[in-house]
Write a protein that binds this DNA or RNA. Structure first.
Length: 274
DNA sequence: GACCAGGTGTCCG
DNA sequence: CGGACACCTGGT
């Protein structure tokens, strides 16, 4: 455990935590400017003063190199993406300005699938609450900073545990079915991770899962498979496309990274709504 | 009590 | 294929 401090462009942990793509990055209960991250069964403390480029990672050098560097997508050039935005598009320009510290995290596919199935017809505070309840119910626990922390539970745990205390509502049966199929090998996630299959093939595979429709499938592709061309359209996006783009968004202009653009717009809508 | 929240399954034409 | 409608739960 050590402090690894570095300057990173287009990186703002507050924006990332509030962007709606992840549900388990939270302010540290005691330390200011500090957030906790739990992912891939690991815990990270990360510190960044508001508006600063200097970021401190509290972890081993190995974890930083092998896990967190990739997790936060530090190798991708977000400045280039922002520069490519149509300067005539005032709304998107403003959205990208406000969200210029957002990165599309490389989260664990399994966690993303479960989290975004829970997200349907739900609100973000309750989504986060449900996920924490799941982790406390049956996630592996260990001690960090004198507190108990919980990993995201794997398919076996979710299948074998009574999930009713997590208050998932009608989504519970979707999670149960998926957990059972993954645990019993009927649903092979590694095939999705390593495949370079065409976009529509992967999308159809995901949509064949009980409880996964077009919107959740696109979120899984963007946040769980890092398919940056994925462009999820939810109620927020739909409303903005209607109001600001006359019902048609120029996705093809940004086709290789439309998901990043989507995230700027979505983040702007939920956090800076005017 | 009605309505809403990062939608989807089901049914029906 | 497209449009209604119900749906757990917790908050306003």
């Amino acid at each position: 455990m050590q402090e690894i401090k570095m300057s990173i462009p287009n990186f703002d942990i507050r924006q990332i935590a509030a962007s709606g793509q992840c549900f388990r990055i939270n302010p540290h209960p005691e330390e200011p400017d500090t957030f906790t991250v739990i992912a891939y069964g690991r815990y990270l403390k990360i510190r960044q003063k508001a508006g600063s480029r200097e970021v401190s990672f509290f972890c081993s050098a190995d974890d930083f190199k092998n896990l967190w560097w990739d997790y936060f997508d530090i190798g991708t050039d977000y400045a280039g993406i922002i520069q490519s935005i149509d300067p005539e598009d005032q709304y998107l320009t403003a959205a990208a300005q406000k969200g210029s510290g957002i990165r599309i995290l490389r989260q664990q596919l399994w966690e993303v699938m479960v989290s975004f199935i829970i997200s349907q017809n739900n609100n973000i505070p309750r989504i986060k609450h449900c996920i924490e309840l799941l982790c406390e119910l049956c996630g592996t626990s260990w001690q960090e900073d004198g507190r108990t922390v919980y990993a995201f539970p794997d398919a076996k745990r979710l299948y074998l545990t009574d999930l009713s205390p997590a208050k998932l509502g009608y989504r519970e049966k979707y999670i149960k079915t998926l957990a059972e199929n993954v645990w019993k090998g009927k649903e092979d996630l590694s095939e999705l991770i390593f495949s370079r299959s065409p976009y529509s093939y992967v999308e159809n595979r995901l949509k064949s899962i009980y409880g996964v429709g077009p919107k959740v499938a696109n979120c899984i592709m963007l946040f769980g498979l890092h398919r940056l061309e994925s462009f999820p359209v939810d109620t927020w996006m739909h409303k903005i496309i209607e109001e600001k783009y006359n019902g048609v968004f120029p996705v093809e202009r940004y086709r290789d990274y439309a998901g990043v653009i989507q995230q700027y717009i979505f983040n702007y809508a939920i956090n800076e709504s005017d």
